[in-house]
Simulated scan of single mutants.
Amino acid sequence: MKQDETCIFEEPKKKLVMSASEKPSSSCSVMSTVALARDIDPLLKDLNEKKQSFKRNVVSLAAELKDVRNRLASQEQSYAKETLTRKEAETKAKSMEFEIGRLQKKLKERNEHQEVYSFSNCIKRYKATRHYSKHVRDTG
């Protein structure tokens, strides 16, 4: 050790400082290493435990984030499918409304045509009946 260096080692709740002028022995180095190792070992264990806990938390949060992203993607896909289905249903409903209107118009035209045809047939039968009656009277 140099003249102005000090030998520092800690014991629980006690700090010992030994100056170079006090002629430290070679055991100071060994004692300080042992004391430092004894004091640092619990600190390292605690730090290591905190590090492991932090890693577990990060892994857990990453898994949760992945799960949330998957659920979000699933919901977005479901929403897109629902939107498409709704648009298809709206298009089909409009098409059906148009078809119903077209069929109603066609039915109305047929009914009108049928009425004209029925009326025409009625007149023809009336005329035929009159003609037959006149013929029966004339021949009889």
Rank of each mutant, 00 (worst) to 15 (best):
K106Y: 07
R110I: 11
V30G: 07
E64Y: 03
V30H: 08
E10S: 06
S32Q: 02
L61C: 11
R56V: 06
R38A: 08
V34Q: 06
D41H: 04
K87E: 13
V68S: 05
T6K: 15
E5F: 13
K81V: 13
A73C: 08
N48T: 14
S133E: 04
G140I: 07
E99F: 04
I123G: 00
S29W: 14
S32V: 01
V116C: 01
D39C: 10
K124D: 08
D4W: 14
R102E: 08
K55D: 11
A89I: 07
P24D: 06
G140H: 03
K124R: 11
V68L: 12
K81E: 15
K92V: 05
S74L: 08
R110L: 14
V136E: 01
K23G: 09
M1S: 02
G140W: 02
Q104C: 04
V136P: 00
C7P: 02
V59T: 12
K15F: 13
E64A: 05
S25I: 01
E11M: 05
K45E: 11
N121L: 01
S78P: 00
L47K: 14
S120H: 03
S32M: 03
E90D: 02
T139M: 10
V34T: 09
S120Y: 02
K13W: 06
N57C: 03
R56M: 06
T129C: 09
V58I: 09
K2P: 12
S25E: 05
L61Q: 15
H113W: 11
T85M: 11
C122L: 02
R86P: 00
G101N: 15
V116P: 00
E76K: 06
L43Y: 11
K106A: 15
T83P: 00
T6L: 15
G101F: 15
